[in-house]
Design a protein around this nucleic acid. Structure first.
Length: 451
DNA sequence: ATCGGCTCGCGCAA
DNA sequence: TGCGCGAAGCCGAT
């Protein structure tokens, strides 16, 4: 089922005579449960044309490094073979995606594109829509509830978004059927970038290689995501509600890198979890749907989602008032990046992120709060936290990452008791960690990891 | 161990 | 306009 609220016409013009219906894949990097892909197939069938999928790999994606490209290439290789099984050609090219889409648009009758929420993703789509001479249709597949239908404005907190999402769940929590392809495109010939071995493919890109991909324990791709999900539902979901905030336990689903690259659909995950009777179900769906889509709401409606300017007035005001408070510790970005602070818990969290590409969700909050505490100015702290997040997390540059950092500075939260540096922004300390879990056990676990 | 206060703005009831 | 309520925390009082 493709609800009409998922569909937005970016260029309203008559279809032209063409050789195919083009789906420019960008955010939803998967063959399975992809509304944009299924929509493109339907349109292609209607026009008696083959659907063709294009993906452009640019060397210049801001802040992306080998870690991100490696994970993405692994996923794309799988997308290519899954699409081939349905008779659909994936044209992979090594160039800026909006340029590549424009080239292939010349012989397209209709263009379909998936949806991204960040500034760059939006501008790519706007540019294509402005230049295309055929319809450009955007299909939103990486949320359970389409963002504007959930809420027409920037939401204040999870509490204000939650009822709005809940009301719509029945409508959107429904499976997407696969549409059989009537005319195949797999025989069509295009100059293309071939992935083959990931290391070899990586070596052909002109990218930042200072953050390595190979050491990361997460392999990309839909098959791997589904296997992790299955293991999560079978073995961890039942205790998710009481263990999810304990980083010494492997109690979470590890879906975020896969969700970030669109290698798995949040709808697919939600349906799988929802079909189970489990005490952990509600807590998981809260994080997967309400909190994740609250983050997307923030990025969609707040133009300053990636800076200090994006947090509410009361947060900026209270932080300003405490800007000159004495910092007990002050570290440079380099000292933080190298995990050289006085705090073993913080250093462990930083090390976990650098080595594995994924810091535990609970530690992400503590980590961000401490950067605010140990940096001269809150604006600077915000920039450092986001820089490190985007550089080392596989899911860096995700709405969830922007929102997570902003949360540490008060976004989507309420004020709490006044104190130095933080003002009325929620404070966290290491005593809290020790109270909630075996914090020293966490440090030991991380220290055992080889660099 | 458990509880209330901290502090602000949203959103509904009146 | 008033007021209940939030909900991934801290801290001091009991």
């Amino acid at each position: 089922m493709i609800q009409r609220e998922r569909i937005k016409i970016l260029k309203d013009t008559a279809p032209k005579k063409g050789a195919y219906v083009l789906y420019w894949m960008q955010a939803s990097q998967r063959e399975e449960c992809n509304h944009a892909l299924e929509y493109a197939i339907k349109v292609a069938n209607e026009y008696g044309l083959p659907p063709l999928v294009f993906f452009g790999i640019t060397d210049d994606y801001p802040e992306a490094n080998e870690r991100h490209y490696g994970f993405m290439l692994e996923g794309l290789k799988e997308v290519k073979s899954s699409l081939e099984k349905r008779g659909i050609k994936l044209v992979l090219r090594h160039l800026s995606p909006e340029t590549g889409a424009e080239e292939l648009a010349r012989r397209a009758s209709v263009i379909v594109v998936d949806r991204g929420y960040t500034r760059l993703q939006r501008s790519w789509r706007e540019r294509l829509a402005a230049r295309a001479d055929c319809p450009v249709i955007q299909v939103e597949s990486d949320v359970v509830v389409p963002v504007e239908d959930a809420s027409p404005k920037e939401e204040y907190s999870a509490a204000t978004l939650r009822p709005k999402i809940s009301r719509k769940l029945e409508k959107y929590l429904v499976p997407l059927k696969k549409t059989p392809v009537k005319r195949e495109s797999s025989h069509m010939r295009f100059a293309a970038f071939s992935i083959g071995d990931t290391e070899t493919a990586l070596s052909r890109l002109q990218i930042d290689r200072s953050v390595r991909w190979r050491q990361v324990p997460y392999r990309g791709g839909t098959a791997r995501a589904k296997k992790l999900l299955e293991d999560f539902i079978e073995n961890k979901l039942d205790r998710y509600h009481d263990l999810r905030n304990d980083p010494t336990r492997d109690a979470t689903s590890h879906m975020s890198p896969y969700l970030h690259f669109g290698q798995i659909s949040p709808l697919y995950v939600a349906l799988k979890v929802d079909s189970r009777k489990s005490p952990g179900k509600a807590a998981y769906l809260e994080e997967l749907i309400v909190r994740r889509e609250l983050g997307i709401n923030f990025v969609r409606y707040n133009g300053h989602y990636d800076s200090f300017e994006g947090i509410p007035n009361w947060c900026r005001k209270t932080l300003r008032e405490h800007e000159r408070d004495e910092r007990g510790f002050a570290y440079s970005r380099e000292e933080l990046e190298e995990g050289r602070t006085h705090d073993p818990y913080w250093n462990a969290a930083q090390k976990e992120m650098v080595l594995t590409g994924k810091m535990h969700g609970y530690m992400r909050m503590y980590w961000g709060k401490k950067i605010l505490e140990w940096t001269k100015k809150p604006e600077e702290a915000f920039a450092i936290a986001l820089f490190l997040n985007n550089r080392y997390e596989i899911d860096g540059r995700d709405p969830g990452g922007f929102t997570g950092v902003a949360w540490c500075f008060g976004k989507h939260d309420r004020p709490w008791g006044k104190r130095p540096i933080f003002g009325t922004i929620r404070y966290m300390n290491d005593k809290g960690l020790r109270r909630k879990f075996d914090a020293d056990g966490y440090v030991k676990k991380i220290e055992q990891m080889r660099p």
